[in-house]
Structures are given as C-alpha cells and as structure tokens.
C-alpha cells in the first residue's frame, strides 16, 4: 500500500499556505486603493497614508476571494465618511437625497474594485464573491492580514486583506 503522505497527496501539518504578507504587500494594496479612488471617487481625491483611529460607528464593505488564497478584502470607514464617499462617487449623478441603499451600493462597489485588483496579484485562479456591506465584516486571522490605513479628506479609512483560514492550521488530509 502506498504512503499517501510520501506521494504528496496529503498536506503535512506544517505545510501552511504562504502568509498573506508574503503574497501582497502594503504598498501594492495602497496603490490599488489609490487607483480606485482616482478613477471612481475623483481625479483630485488623494489618499494620505496616515493611520488614524476609526470613529465608533463604522461601516464596512467586503468581497471574499476563494482560491489558493482564501480570504476577504475589507474596506472600513466611518458612517459619515461612507456618505461623503457615496456623494463623491456618484458626482453629478447623485440623487437629491442619498439613501442608505446608495451608500451600501457605492461602498460595495469600491470594495469590489479594490478586491478584484487585489485578487489579480494573489495566486490564482480564484473566484471573487459579490460585495457585501455591514457593520460586522467577516472575522479573519488578524495575524495573517495586510492592513492599510489612510486619510481621505481628513477622515480615516482602512483596507484590510485578511486570510480566513484559521481552521487550516489543523488541516492535514486533503
């Protein structure tokens, strides 16, 4: 009988996938986010790479990526910032009164665009999920994440690329 582990059909306990930080760095995430901002939010909308505490009430949008690397790309900002972002993103197409649905949609699309481009630099092939929006983003492995903190119009926001594979630490057979 063949030894499956020697045949390479089992993943050894120590064979963890590469850490997220080995696959994508802060500078790349920051550059992707800046490109999304310039194209979607406005040509003059600069992101300043300066960490600042997020307000108590935040809103997050995220997309999940499933593939050789599995996790989520999460965008988080204050609720007021999310509203301002929506107005900026819609520009002249913004309705007179921006509704929560518009905010969720705009924030979700920003996560979608940033996530799609982050996915492109991660090992593939992988699948991009539909954007989700809420106050509680998926929990990931804090230790296995890349986090970028910036200021937009003086307000803080973060982009986090986080693995969600805590259970893989104990995984052996495939």
């Amino acid at each position: 009988m063949s030894d499956l582990s020697d045949a390479g059909l089992r993943r050894r306990a120590g064979d963890l996938p590469p850490a997220t930080a080995e696959l994508v760095d802060e500078a790349t995430v920051c550059e992707i986010t800046e490109q999304a901002w310039l194209a979607l939010v406005g040509e003059d909308e600069v992101l300043v790479p300066l960490p600042a505490p997020l307000p108590a009430e935040t809103l997050s949008s995220w997309v999940e990526i499933v593939g050789p690397w599995t996790g989520a790309v999460v965008l988080t900002c204050g609720r007021d910032t999310a509203l301002d972002l929506t107005r900026a993103l819609l520009g002249e197409h913004a309705p007179q009164e921006v509704e929560q649905e518009d905010v969720d949609d705009a924030l979700g699309e920003l996560a979608n665009v940033v996530g799609g481009n982050v996915k492109a630099v991660l090992p593939g092939p992988s699948v991009l999920g539909l954007p989700e929006v809420g106050t509680t983003p998926p929990s990931g492995r804090e230790a296995d994440s890349v986090r970028v903190a910036v200021l937009w119009r003086g307000s803080p926001l973060t982009v986090r690329v986080q693995s969600v594979l805590a259970e893989r630490e104990n995984e052996v057979p495939l």
Partner: peptide
C-alpha cells in the same frame, strides 16, 4: 449590479 457603477 451596482447602481453607482451603472450611473457612472
């Protein structure tokens, strides 16, 4: 599926 993107 994004209203914002459709508008843009």
């Amino acid at each position: 599926d994004s209203r914002a993107m459709r508008r843009i």
